[in-house]
Simulated scan of single mutants.
Amino acid sequence: MAKIETVGIIGFNVMGAAIGLNAATCGYKVIYKELNDELVKAMYDRWVKGALEKRVAKGKMTQDDMDKVCGLITGTADYKDLADCDLIIEAAVEKMDLKIQIFKDLDKVVRPDTILASNTSTFLIEKLMEGISNPARTAGLHYFFPANINRLVEVIRQKETSDETFEALMAFSEKNRKVPIKVNDFPGFAINPVFISSYMVLNNFYGDTYNAATLDEISKQALGVRYGIMWVLNGSGLGTAYHAAASMNEYLADSDVGYPPVPEPLKVQFESGKGWDLEDGPVLDDAAALTVVKEDLLGTIFTICTHLIEKDVVSQKDLELGVKTALAWPNGPFAMMNEMGMEEAARLVKQVVEKGLFKMPKTFAGGVPAAWEV
Results as ranks from 00 to 15, higher is better:
V201F: 00
E90L: 02
V179A: 11
P146M: 08
A171K: 02
E90Y: 00
V93T: 15
L124E: 03
A139L: 00
P146Q: 03
K178F: 05
N134T: 06
G207M: 07
L116I: 10
A91K: 01
K127C: 02
H142I: 12
Y143G: 01
K108V: 10
I125Q: 03
F195K: 02
A117L: 11
K99N: 13
A171I: 01
T161E: 08
I100T: 15
L202T: 15
N204V: 09
I191P: 00
F189H: 09
I102S: 03
N184S: 15
F172A: 07
F103L: 05
F123D: 00
N134W: 04
I156V: 14
S173R: 01
E160W: 02
K178A: 06
K99E: 14
F189P: 03
D107W: 06
H142W: 12
I196A: 12
Q158N: 15
F145I: 07
R157N: 05
G188I: 05
N176P: 01
F172C: 00
L202S: 13
F186L: 01
I100N: 02
E126D: 15
A171E: 14
K108G: 03
L128P: 00
F123A: 00
K182W: 08
I149L: 15
G140Y: 06
A139K: 04
K178W: 00
G207I: 11
P112K: 08
N150T: 10
S173P: 00
E167D: 14
K175C: 13
L124V: 10
E160Q: 09
R137A: 05
K99T: 11
N119M: 05
K104L: 10
D107P: 03
T114P: 01
S198Y: 04
D107Y: 04
R177A: 13
S173A: 15
E160S: 06
M200D: 08
I156E: 04
V109L: 01
A139S: 13
K108H: 11
A168D: 02
N148T: 10
A171Q: 14
I149K: 12
F166K: 09
A190T: 14
R157H: 08
S197F: 02
N204I: 05
A171G: 02
A147H: 05
E90V: 02
L141G: 05
R111A: 07
G131K: 02
Y199F: 14
E126F: 00
A147M: 09
S118Y: 04
S198P: 03
F186A: 04
M200S: 12
L141T: 12
E126H: 05
P193R: 08
Q158L: 09
R157M: 04
N148D: 12
N148H: 01
E126M: 00
S197D: 06
L116Y: 15
P135M: 08
A147T: 13
E126S: 09
F195H: 13
K127D: 14
E126I: 00
S198V: 02
E164Q: 14
N203K: 06
L116V: 12
F103W: 09
N119V: 11
S197C: 05
F145S: 03
F166S: 08
S162F: 07
A147D: 06
S118P: 04
K127F: 07
N203W: 03
L98T: 15
